[in-house]
């Protein structure tokens, strides 16, 4: 059986070829490609000389990262291995940094809404000083888990506690990989607290400093700035 000649190769009309060549040339762009790569680096699917994450696929614990309205879930090593056949896609490993359609599971963390302490104090118990080396798999896991707890607090309306915790990020993770995500959460928490001027100021600074960041759109939405 011989394949027909492709429309793009002359079989189609000029208009058809124009349509198809437009579609065939579309690329994700640098920002989206970078976002995909960074997310896959963070979970150890890709490796990098900088972060040395080879072998990080065997992640411990299911954690979710809700950053800028998104979440990232990693597979627990104790889950059964996926079937060897490649004919089905396992319902696993949702990795998304865009708006979720529903709130991610609110794990019972120290920052859950019900147990929110007075605003003066961070809700989360003081985290032990991380001993993991910056950039190591363990360090990334800790950052992701920490961000997840903060996100839960933000989503629970506990902006004050979230802000207090977020201010600790540079101390807890001096070489943290998620500075941008932390800023997005700060803006969200400020908006929740009604500190709109501060939210706008921080948001605008972020947008000016990182105009190509995938988080720009969300920040602009949060502070009410048209994209």
């Amino acid at each position: 059986m011989t394949d027909p000649k492709r429309l793009l190769d002359g079989e189609g009309s000029e208009f058809e070829r124009e349509l198809l060549s437009t579609l065939a040339r579309e690329r994700p762009g640098r920002a989206l490609s970078r976002r995909m790569r960074q997310s896959l680096l963070a979970v150890g699917v890709l490796t990098s000389a900088k972060t040395g994450l080879a072998g990080f696929v065997a992640l411990a614990g299911v954690v979710s990262l809700g950053v800028g309205g998104g979440w990232l879930a990693l597979r627990h090593p104790s889950q059964p291995s996926p079937p060897a056949a490649v004919s089905s896609v396992p319902a696993v490993t949702h990795i998304a940094l865009t708006e979720p359609t529903s709130a991610p599971p609110a794990a019972s963390t120290p920052m859950a809404a019900e147990s929110a302490p007075p605003p003066e104090a961070p809700v989360a118990a003081p985290a032990p000083r991380p001993s993991a080396a910056p950039g190591s798999a363990r360090d990334l896991r800790e950052q992701i888990a920490w961000l997840d707890r903060v996100r839960v607090a933000v989503r629970a309306g506990d902006g004050t506690s979230a802000l207090a915790e977020l201010s600790q990020y540079p101390r807890k993770f001096p070489r943290g990989e998620f500075a941008q995500e932390v800023t997005v959460l700060k803006v969200e928490a400020l908006v929740q607290n009604g500190q709109l001027a501060a939210a706008r100021s921080l948001g605008n600074k972020f947008v000016n400093a990182h105009p190509e960041s995938p988080h720009v759109e969300r920040i602009q939405r949060l502070i009410g700035t048209p994209p």
Partner: peptide, 21 residues
């Protein structure tokens, strides 16, 4: 575009899990 990026990441996660296959 964003959903396609998320789905692309998911495809690579699945590939990582099944790499030996």
């Amino acid at each position: 575009p964003e959903a396609a990026a998320d789905a692309t990441q998911q495809a690579f996660l699945i590939a990582a899990e099944r790499l030996s296959d």
